[in-house]
Amino acid sequence: MTSTLEEQALKRKERLLALKRKRNGEEETENGEKESNITLPKPVFRSYKPSDEELNGNVLPQAEPADFTEEIKEQLDAAKEKVVIDELDITNLAPRKPDWDLKRDVAKKLEKLERRTQKAIAELIRDRLKQRQEDLATMVNAATNL
């Protein structure tokens, strides 16, 4: 049993080593020699002119600035035109109250509370009227007993 465990451990080590070599770009040939297949990235030169002629193929062409004169002229012409005040709606320019959104969100809840409040007030009034009627009845009974 120990020999099988040792064999499995050795196989695992070999697989791990092969994975490491593969990740590093090394491959073993049939002879057991290691070859390196690592390809280095080619540099791209934007603002540097290399002195080596082999690297001149990686130089990007100089970027030329775009012509913005037409757009600038259009913007200047648009700025010269006068804005007609009659077209502006003053109501849209007025700022909203800072709590308008809170009032909007709470409006439905306030309606429910208002209904409940009115019911509670009506019940209190009925209770007081019932108590007064009972008080009046006891007063009338007390007056007749005298």
Score class of each variant (00 low, 15 high):
residue 123 E to T: 03
residue 112 K to V: 14
residue 48 Y to R: 07
residue 122 A to T: 14
residue 92 N to E: 11
residue 108 K to H: 06
residue 45 F to K: 00
residue 128 R to V: 10
residue 12 R to F: 12
residue 137 A to R: 12
residue 18 A to W: 06
residue 96 R to K: 13
residue 14 E to M: 14
residue 93 L to M: 08
residue 83 V to R: 03
residue 104 R to Y: 10
residue 87 E to D: 13
residue 12 R to T: 13
residue 119 K to E: 12
residue 71 E to Y: 06
residue 141 N to K: 12
residue 126 R to E: 15
residue 51 S to V: 02
residue 92 N to F: 06
residue 58 N to G: 00
residue 101 D to V: 06
residue 66 A to C: 03
residue 92 N to I: 05
residue 53 E to I: 02
residue 54 E to Q: 09
residue 50 P to E: 02
residue 63 A to P: 00
residue 78 A to R: 03
residue 48 Y to A: 04
residue 98 P to M: 05
residue 122 A to F: 08
residue 27 E to C: 03
residue 142 A to R: 07
residue 112 K to I: 15
residue 26 E to G: 04
residue 115 R to Q: 12
residue 6 E to I: 12
residue 101 D to A: 07
residue 51 S to R: 09
residue 80 K to P: 05
residue 6 E to K: 11
residue 143 A to K: 05
residue 45 F to H: 07
residue 3 S to E: 12
residue 100 W to Q: 04
residue 59 V to L: 03
residue 34 K to V: 11
residue 28 E to R: 12
residue 130 K to V: 14
residue 122 A to H: 08
residue 79 A to H: 04
residue 121 I to Q: 13
residue 71 E to D: 09
residue 107 A to V: 03
residue 82 K to T: 07
residue 16 L to A: 11
residue 105 D to A: 14
residue 94 A to M: 14
residue 105 D to K: 11
residue 41 P to G: 04
residue 33 E to D: 15
residue 3 S to I: 15
residue 13 K to W: 02
residue 73 K to S: 10
residue 104 R to Q: 15
residue 142 A to H: 08
residue 111 E to D: 11
residue 13 K to E: 14
residue 138 T to H: 12
residue 48 Y to C: 07
residue 132 R to W: 05
residue 92 N to A: 09
residue 21 R to L: 15
residue 137 A to P: 00
residue 112 K to L: 12
residue 82 K to D: 11
residue 65 P to W: 02
residue 95 P to F: 07
residue 112 K to A: 12
residue 37 N to C: 01
residue 83 V to C: 01
residue 31 N to D: 15
residue 36 S to F: 06
residue 46 R to H: 02
residue 83 V to Q: 02
residue 19 L to D: 15
residue 3 S to Q: 11
residue 125 I to S: 09
residue 7 E to H: 09
residue 110 L to H: 01
residue 66 A to N: 08
residue 34 K to P: 01
residue 87 E to G: 15
